[in-house]
Simulated assay, not measured.
Amino acid sequence: MALADRVVVVEDGRVVQAGPPQEIARRPRTDYVARLVGLALLPGTGRGTRVHLDDGGAVAVAEEASGPVFAAIRPESVALYVARPEGSPRNVWRATIAGATPHGATVRCDLTGEVPLVADVTATAFAELGLAVGAEVWATVKASEVAVYSR
């Protein structure tokens, strides 16, 4: 991706997305492509400043959305807490850490719950919070950190 002018993604024997690497990374069209570029891709229906997800749950977004959309959330935009946080993020969900993979100074956490997410936390924070696979956490995302685009 770093050296390419154009990327073609093949999934199950068919081309699912093609274009410049920046476009692929910014607006993945399938969950597989989103995982390749490290995003949580949430299909849903935009209704004002909320996206109602196809699998249940909702995500607050900063800009108006309508109709079939994707909400994309970067792992570094997700903050984890052991107790329900108070503050400005409009998106606060209960989640369970389903997987934790060290990546240098960070740990990538796969989260299950009402809204499936991926979170990157520092290895220090992961240890200090006593996080582990199976731990219950609170995940937050600011509405301004959610990218929304048409399906």
Results as ranks from 00 to 15, higher is better:
L3P: 14
L3R: 15
R6L: 12
R6T: 15
V8P: 04
V9F: 10
V10R: 07
E11G: 00
E11D: 15
D12M: 04
G13W: 13
G13T: 13
V15P: 09
V15W: 10
Q17H: 08
Q17G: 06
A18H: 11
G19L: 01
G19I: 06
P20N: 09
P20L: 01
P21L: 06
E23H: 09
E23T: 12
A25Y: 13
R27N: 10
R27G: 10
R27Y: 08
P28Q: 03
R29K: 12
R29S: 09
T30S: 05
T30N: 10
D31H: 13
Y32R: 03
V33F: 08
V33D: 02
A34N: 10
A34P: 11
R35K: 14
V37K: 12
A40G: 11
L42W: 04
L42C: 02
G46S: 12
R47A: 15
G48P: 10
G48A: 09
G48N: 01
T49A: 02
T49I: 04
V51Q: 05
V51Y: 02
H52P: 11
H52G: 13
L53Y: 10
L53H: 12
L53K: 06
D54E: 12
D54W: 08
D55P: 02
G57A: 13
A58W: 14
V59C: 09
V59A: 10
V61F: 05
A62G: 08
E63Y: 11
E64Q: 15
E64I: 01
E64R: 15
A65V: 12
A65G: 14
A65W: 04
S66P: 05
S66M: 11
S66T: 15
G67D: 11
F70N: 14
A71E: 14
A71Q: 09
A72I: 03
A72S: 15
I73K: 09
R74C: 05
R74A: 14
R74S: 14
P75M: 10
V78A: 08
A79K: 08
A79L: 13
L80K: 01
Y81F: 14
V82C: 00
R84D: 07
R84H: 15
E86A: 15
E86W: 05
G87W: 02
G87K: 03
S88I: 14
R90I: 06
N91C: 08
V92D: 03
V92K: 03
V92C: 12
R94M: 07
R94I: 01
A95F: 09
I97M: 06
G99F: 07
T101Q: 01
H103L: 09
G104Q: 04
G104W: 02
T106G: 04
V107T: 07
C109I: 00
D110H: 10
T112D: 12
E114F: 00
E114S: 00
V115P: 02
V115H: 03
L117R: 00
V121M: 07
A123P: 00
A123Q: 05
T124M: 02
E128P: 05
E128D: 14
G130Y: 08
A132T: 00
V133W: 01
G134Q: 01
A135T: 10
A135S: 11
E136A: 11
E136D: 11
W138L: 09
A139M: 00
T140N: 03
T140Q: 04
V141I: 15
A143N: 06
A143L: 07
V146R: 01
V146G: 10
V146E: 11
A147I: 03
A147V: 12
V148M: 06
V148W: 08
Y149E: 00
Y149W: 02
S150H: 13
R151M: 11
R151P: 04
R151H: 05
